[in-house]
Amino acid sequence: MTNAPGSPFPSRIAGAFARARSQGRKALVLYLTGCDPDFETSRRLLLAAARAGTDVLELGVPWSDPSADGPAIQAAMRRALAAGGGMGKALDLCRAVRADNAEVAIVLFGYANPIFVRGAAKFAAQAKQAGADGALCVDWPADEDPELAQALSQQGLDLVPLIAPTSTPERVKAIAAVAGGFLYYVSLTGITGSQLPNLGEASARVRQVRELSGGRLPVAVGFGIATPADARAVAGFADGVVVGSAAVRVIERAVAAGRDPVPELEAFVRDLRAALG
């Protein structure tokens, strides 16, 4: 089962958002590139992030051609690939994290080709077996090709979709209809790690996304959220806050200086979590 035994929620991801809500706060979603800077450090980083209050871990699957990512995550993927990272290792990593933490929700986050080459059905089965709760594939639109959504659904895994500022109302409805876990609203038209945009527009769009999706799923907002203050501002209107590039940069800085990145990431995540109330 995806959800913890005896859980009233349809999935561990839904449970994570519900738990945050019941605690009167917003959920923290944290992205880290798997195997950055290496398998074992990455395992410790993911567990530390969970320990420090992350509700949903997005485990980034390194890919050679991350065309939707900005410089920080591109560099993380290069480090991860150099350390032997990829889809195979990301699944191993997921299994290793799950072995030590039964609670944190895990979403495998990546690009289409590593899934496609393996086959969507095989990927979904392996993801399930590794203890993942869902998947987000940046460049595999569910309305364009339903194969991945169906494969995940057959394994009881959530398909977490991206919704963009450019998404039309029709697209939002179609995307939400096959989504599970939460809806990831991209705060800006751009790549990961860009500057946080004007939040007035994002706030209005999140309201619209909730209406169009019938409020069935929580809406988390990501892209450009780098500091606890950013997180607090976004938490004012979203159900969850996604932090990615900023966390990856914390790791990059520590590694470049020859320090163990785990304590610094853990402190960074604690500050983010504290900002969410």
């Binding site: 460049d139 595999w140 639109p141 364009e144 090709d145 991206l162 500022p165 450019t166 998404s167």
Partner: peptide, 11 residues
């Protein structure tokens, strides 16, 4: 097909 991020789909 169209295998791109959602931001580009409407375009």
């Amino acid at each position: 097909g169209r295998y791109v991020s959602e931001t580009l789909m409407p375009a």
